Computed example of a mutant assay.
Amino acid sequence: MNIGVIGAGVMGMGVAQSLAQSGHEVTLIDIAEEILNSAKKKIHNNVRFHALFNKDFNKTADEVLSLITTTTNYSELSDADFIIENVPEDWDIKKSVYEKIIKISKGDCIFLVNTSCISITKIASLTDRPDRVFGVHFMNPVPVKKTVEGIKGYHTSDVTIRHTNDLLASMGKEIIVVNDYPGFVSNRISHLLMNEAAYVVQDQVADPAQVDDIFVKCYGHTMGPLATADLIGLDTVVNSLDILYDSYQDSKFRVCPLLRKMVDAGLHGRKSGQGFFEYETEEMFIK
């Protein structure tokens, strides 16, 4: 089985790594060789890091990378059975990607949309095969998360869901299938939490560490809302909230001014080295 992965950012790298660790051949595509070379180095480091905390994992970083081909050429996806799209939450960017892949992909290829908030039905309208478009919202860090959120568009077929379920099962993941409305379940709820946490910091009710300590130590969450926002990327959180606001026209999704200010200042979280917290590395795994 040949699987194409579009986008070599944090999510795309994680998806490609998780697929390769499961023995799948992957074609990873992005707009520049520099991005792809950086992605390969990070995947190499992340596989080694993953092995330290997973004693049953018996593949080397080189073995995993041998299954990942990188390219900037979309024509390399012409034989893909699945294409998993992970580009930023920007409608114009997504539209341009689907305009390309619909021309070169084979007719029975399934498009899996790894989006945070954009409607799967809306994305499917860009294609000539809406029945073969399915939302698969991987969680970060992808290689260690065992469950994904699946989003059934208006036209998504049961056959497409079944084939996708088989793929995910081969990766050691299960899927929870929900219906299609912007933000779905996970981000429609979680982004409200992260946004309100930012308001709490902006209003000087508490500092970021105190906010997250309450959720970790009092509620038993693995990670607080602000560390989660840093992991996702504050720029991605802001883009997603803007999509939710535009989609529902509901003021509850209005972006906290502090969040937007931080993004404007280049404080994007883990990937930039600083967000609500400071980070020494860009490692995507959490001990």
Rank of each mutant, 00 (worst) to 15 (best):
D158T: 14
D158S: 10
D158I: 12
D158E: 14
D158V: 10
D158M: 10
D158C: 05
V159Y: 11
V159D: 13
V159P: 00
T160A: 10
T160K: 09
T160M: 10
T160C: 10
I161K: 11
I161N: 05
I161P: 00
R162E: 15
R162V: 07
R162K: 15
H163I: 02
H163Y: 09
H163N: 08
H163S: 06
T164R: 05
N165A: 11
N165S: 14
N165L: 02
D166M: 11
D166G: 03
D166K: 14
D166Q: 14
D166Y: 10
L167Q: 04
L167W: 06
L167K: 02
L168H: 13
L168M: 14
L168I: 13
L168Y: 09
A169I: 12
A169T: 12
A169K: 12
A169C: 04
A169S: 13
S170K: 05
S170M: 00
S170H: 00
S170G: 00
S170N: 04
S170P: 01
M171H: 03
M171E: 05
G172K: 15
G172A: 12
G172I: 13
G172F: 13
K173Q: 07
K173T: 02
K173A: 02
K173C: 01
K173E: 04
K173R: 15
E174H: 03
E174L: 08
E174I: 07
E174G: 14
I175G: 00
I175P: 01
I175F: 05
I175E: 01
I175S: 10
I176V: 12
I176K: 05
I176S: 02
I176G: 00
V177R: 04
V177F: 08
V178W: 01
V178Q: 04
N179I: 07
N179K: 11
N179Y: 11
N179W: 07
N179P: 01
D180Q: 08
D180K: 03
D180I: 10
D180L: 11
D180P: 07
D180E: 10
D180A: 09
Y181G: 05
Y181K: 12
Y181H: 09
Y181A: 13
Y181V: 13
P182T: 12
P182W: 04
P182F: 04
P182I: 11
P182R: 01
G183N: 04
G183K: 01
G183P: 00
G183W: 03
G183M: 04
G183I: 12
G183R: 03
G183V: 05
F184R: 09
F184P: 08
F184Y: 15
F184L: 07
F184I: 11
F184M: 12
V185T: 08
V185K: 00
V185M: 05
V185P: 07
S186E: 11
S186N: 08
S186A: 15
N187Q: 06
N187W: 06
N187F: 09
N187E: 11
N187C: 08
N187V: 15
N187L: 12
R188V: 02
R188Q: 06
R188M: 02
R188G: 05
R188W: 02
I189H: 03
I189Y: 04
I189W: 06
I189L: 15
I189G: 02
I189E: 04
I189Q: 06
S190K: 06
S190C: 14
S190N: 14
S190R: 02
H191E: 13
H191R: 12
H191P: 03
H191G: 04
H191F: 15
H191Y: 15
H191D: 04
